[in-house]
Nucleic acid binder design. Structure first.
Lengths: 232, 232
DNA sequence: CGTATTGTTGATTGCAATCAATGAGAGTGG
DNA sequence: CCACTCTCATTGATTGCAATCAACAATACG
């Protein structure tokens, strides 16, 4: 895990080769690296925001480590978390000049920041890179579509089953993992309240579907098949 | 309105110049038109499907006229309509080799079909076109994000206010328009039941927010400010 | 050790779903 | 042309899932 990784991430919704970020210059034939925009490393402390809705979209980002939440707020404070972004995910790409959502660090986060204005240049000079960003964006749209089904048509239990299976796939290869976010984040991602999240997890524990550590963040999927049955 | 239109559509979520579709060849310097993929006109009758989830993603499409609904189904028949696509909107672009959702004609529809495999070639040869498709896709992602807030965090009344204002903006410049889709489509788009859609529209009529024709499809927004107050 | 934050559990409410019936058109065929 | 059917929309009665209100427990933090 790290910036030197050159394989595709296959567990993330947005698949971008790490090489794109770190060795972008090498992808451009007959160009000196000096001409190239380079991802700029940035660290964001837990709870801090990376950008807010309405900010100028000067940069887009790629997650190196940690978890980023993308959210939108209604005027009265209701919040929807559109997505959590993990290692290798891209976020902050915009069609317009400003960011249409807020990005915050769920835990301590490291990202690479790319000048948004360079996107077009990058794509011009390396069509393969353009393809990959396009693919990543389409994959993100895919995930958004799946999440709309969840928000519009699934029950609380189904929402949590889907969420846990998704996070397990992205955070670890095993059925044993620690959630990086708190209940309020899960609730605002799934269109529920924290009470319902808590109650549903407790019920799933009673049903033998999962095991919850006393601490609350550690999850074991003890009946993956049972969870998958709730998923579709 | 037709294939000769060369201006941008500004009222749709996905903005693509019509010229891209119909005169793509002209955008490619020093290339014979014979080499170029051309949009293939297709007519789909009301209710027919354009492609189904799982189909090979051989083509992507651009709406010329009519309304297309994009949906996903759960195994037990619950349906989520991810989006309605109107004039000039692109749909059916995929990151993988198969379609991840179903596209159906809400009413009689005309589209242009483009070979999906040509996308990469097109973008290679005309970076400007690539930018535009990229922009259209990002705009689509934007709309998806807005819709997630609606599905996850808005009340039935707020959902319908948002929906009516959106459709008014896209279908007409006036506050008087005909909805192309039936109540079941609206319900499955907003994460509600047809009964709740009907009741809420009736209540909005009583509140003087809208006027409903006896036929049911014709809507007048009589208090746009009132609706906008419900929107955020 | 005291305080703030986060998570769990209980009691109750309320919004939208479900179940059910009726009405209004549109299309069909006798 | 008119019954007949089918689809679509509305309205009413009731239920039920998740939200809200409330208290408390557990953990982190200064």
């Amino acid at each position: 895990m790290g910036p030197t990784m050159q394989t595709f991430s296959t567990t993330n919704g947005i698949r971008v080769p790490a090489a794109v970020a770190m060795r972008g210059a090498d992808n451009l034939p007959r160009r000196s690296p000096a001409n190239m925009p380079t991802g700029q490393r940035r660290h964001i402390a837990k709870g801090e925001e990376i950008f807010t809705e309405g900010d100028a979209a000067d940069y887009f980002y790629k997650v190196i480590s940690g978890t980023v939440r993308i959210c939108k707020l209604l005027s009265d404070g209701r919040r929807q978390i559109e997505a959590f972004h993990l290692h290798d995910d891209l976020f902050g790409l915009e069609s317009g000049r400003t960011h249409r959502f807020t990005a915050e660090a769920v835990d301590d986060v490291e990202v690479l920041a790319f000048r948004h204005g360079d996107l077009s240049t990058l794509v011009h000079e390396s069509p393969a890179l353009g393809d990959q960003i396009m693919t990543a964006t389409l994959a993100s749209l895919d995930r958004a579509h799946d999440h709309m089904v969840l928000l519009g048509r699934k029950t609380a239990q189904e929402k949590l089953a889907s969420f846990l299976l998704d996070m397990a796939g992205r955070l670890a290869q095993t059925d044993h993992f620690d959630l990086p976010m708190q209940r309020a984040d899960i609730a605002d991602h799934l269109g529920l309240t924290i009470e319902t999240v808590s109650r549903t997890l407790t019920q799933m524990t009673r049903d033998g579907l999962i095991k919850l550590a006393a601490v609350g963040r550690t999850i074991v999927l003890s009946d993956k098949a049972g969870l998958q049955k709730l998923n579709a």
